[in-house]
Each structure stands twice: as structure tokens, then as C-alpha cells.
Amino acid sequence: MNKKDIFLVSAFRENSVWKQILGICSSLAVTNLMMNSLIMGLGVIFALALSNMTISLIRSYTPRSIRMMVQTLIIASYVIIVDIFLKANLPVVSKQLGPYVGLIITNCILMGRAEAFAAKNTPIDSFIDGIGAGVGYTLVLLAISFVRELFGFGTLFGFGIFGAWWTKWSIMVMAPSAFFILAMLIWIINNRYYKMKG
């Protein structure tokens, strides 16, 4: 498989969120604003790509019995970097994301890619796979937060789209809307998939 295919497969065809239903916790919690989703997505891309590469680099030296623990510790180290970076440079966003930055560690996507891809492939391929899976995850986050921010606040990335006449839909700011929108997204994508398959 060439590099471009690795990227495309892990970003779209085998997208972790809508295909494998992984990493749902954080994709629902941070999607009330597009800015938060984007920064969360970038954090995940960073941690995922680098942890994938590191895990792949040491894959032949890691004893099988403790590899889960090793993988978790590697992932945790990169997530700590993301957390410290956000606290120092973007304190407001860091405060809004709250515990969800730390929760990247238990995001099943990272563990899933480490087990499914990085444990068997070369470091460069694993790095690209990590970026692909991260981009796929970010796109889903942005899609959900697009709907939630547009109807819930009447803005996109903080810029006013609708004028003052817009009545904000308070349900879009609250938790249930995230469940409904993700379900709709999965429904639309599955239907397209079945149609393509015929």
C-alpha cells in the first residue's frame, strides 16, 4: 500500500468514528463550538501520529505481555505535552476543554490504531496512518460542531452568521443534540455506503 492510500483509508474508508464507533466520548463533548473541535482535533492528530510512530519504532523490543501498558504510557506522554502546550498558549480554550484533553489518553482511537496498525507496520507508515485517522476524527468533530454552533449560537468559529434576529436553539448547546446529530451523520453515511454497494 502506498502512502497516499494509507492516509485515505484511515481517514475516510475506515474512519474510526463513523465506521468503528470509537472515540465517541470526546467527539460529543467538545463539539458545542467549532474552535474547540478544531483545537481538540489538532491535539489528537499530534498525539496520534507521534505515539503511532514511537510505538512502531520500539515494536520489536516490546514484550507482548506488557505492550498495552507501554502503549498507554507512550500515549500519555504525548497527551501531557498537548495539555501543557494548551495551558501555556491557549488558556481559555484549555479551560473550556477541561478534562477532555486528558481524556485523549483513554480515547479508543489511539489505542485502536496502535494495536491495529502501529504494532505491525514501519514508523513512517504508522505516522501517516496516525495523521489520517486524526484527520478523519477532526472532520467528524467539525461536522457535528458546525451544526451545533450554527443553530445553538448563530455563529461559526465565533463569527456571527445570523444577525440579532436569530433565536438561539438552546437544545443545540445541551447534551442531547450531540447524540442526535452523530446518529444522523452515521445514518447518512451508512445509507450512502449501502447504496454504493448496491
Partner: peptide, 13 residues
Amino acid sequence: GLQGAGISLIITG
């Protein structure tokens, strides 16, 4: 298209 995760998410909502 809703079977499995889709319908569970709607119920959870």
C-alpha cells in the same frame, strides 16, 4: 443504516 450504533445514539439522546 441506523442499526447498531445509530439507533443506540438516538435512544441515548
